[in-house]
Amino acid sequence: MYPPPHAYAPSAAPRPPRRWWQHPALIIAALVLLPPAGIALAWTSQWERTRKVLATVLSGIWFLIPLLSDPPKEAGAEAKPQAAAAPSASPTPSPTPTPPAAPTPSAAPQMPSAVGWPYVQAEKAVEELIDGELSASSAYADVPLPADHGTWLVCFQDVAAGTGLVPQSAAPVVHLVAPGTACPATPGTDLRPKPPAPAPAPPTTARTTAPAPDDDGTGGSGNVSYANCAAVRAAGTAPIRRGDPGYGRHLDRDGDGVGCER
């Protein structure tokens, strides 16, 4: 006889608790990002065998696709063999277009060279460049400038030719001479220079005559006296005249005012 069957079928063995590395989301992320680790985690999970095999195959294909594909060829590597096979003429570099020049502000007007022009011509040329008027003066200090000086010629200009003018504040001046008159060396020179004043005569020293000596026979000076003409000649003052130091009546026998004549 056979033993009676059990009234109920034995229940399936309980599954062990799932670890954190067996979580399906973690395994799927590992299969996509890091296939070798994902496959290892899939086989330690509680998945069915069919699911483990399918995950292993798909992850392995995903892992092998980048390894089996050809690496991209560099453009320089392809160009070198072609250059070695058939040298080709180097292309002519196309000219680089020059950028348009930036607009420059209008240049300031320049003073023209008016030397030798009649004043009317210089006045017209200059006053077209400035807001004011062209001033004029005579090049000679002793020649006045007439009111009608349009035909007078320009000898000098105080603003050199080519100098930039500020139209609002420029006030150039020209120095004129009458037609047929030569220009001076410098403006302000006299056309007819005055003759130099005579040099003053050197002062003359008036010679004063000493008063005649008295009839007592003393000399002209109390400091000098001569006893006779021999003393006068010895002193080197002969002849001695009236008024000279040491003159005396006893030295002038004829009384003509000159003693010790011989």
Rank of each mutant, 00 (worst) to 15 (best):
Arg15Asp: 11
Arg249Asn: 14
Pro245Glu: 13
Ala178Ser: 13
Ile65Pro: 00
Leu134Cys: 09
Ala210Pro: 09
Ala86Met: 07
Asp254Cys: 11
Ile130Gln: 04
Tyr140Asn: 07
Gly220Ala: 15
Val154His: 07
Thr189Trp: 04
Pro203Val: 07
Leu251Tyr: 08
Ala238His: 08
Gly257Leu: 13
Phe156Asn: 00
His175Ile: 02
Pro144Met: 08
Leu33Trp: 08
Ala107Met: 00
Ile28Val: 15
Ala170Tyr: 02
Thr208Asn: 05
Thr189Lys: 02
Tyr8Lys: 10
Asp190Gly: 00
Leu165Gly: 08
Pro71Leu: 13
Ala231Phe: 05
Pro195Phe: 01
Asn228Trp: 03
Pro144His: 02
Tyr226Ile: 03
Ile61Gln: 04
Gly219Ala: 15
Pro198Ala: 13
Gln82Ser: 06
Ala40Glu: 01
Ala238Gly: 00
Trp117Leu: 15
Ala25Phe: 11
Ala139Lys: 01
Tyr119Ala: 12
Ala160Tyr: 02
Lys194Val: 10
Pro172Ser: 11
Gly219Val: 05
Pro66Ala: 07
Ala185Tyr: 04
Arg15Gly: 10
Pro213Met: 02
Pro184Ala: 11
Val53Asn: 01
Asn228Met: 03
Thr56Lys: 05
Tyr247Gly: 08
Pro195Gln: 05
Pro72Ala: 15
Ala160Thr: 06
Val57Leu: 15
Leu26Asn: 00
Thr44Ala: 13
Arg233Ala: 10
Pro5Thr: 06
Trp47Leu: 15
Lys194Phe: 01
Ala230Arg: 10
Pro81Asp: 08
Ser45Arg: 11
Glu128Asp: 14
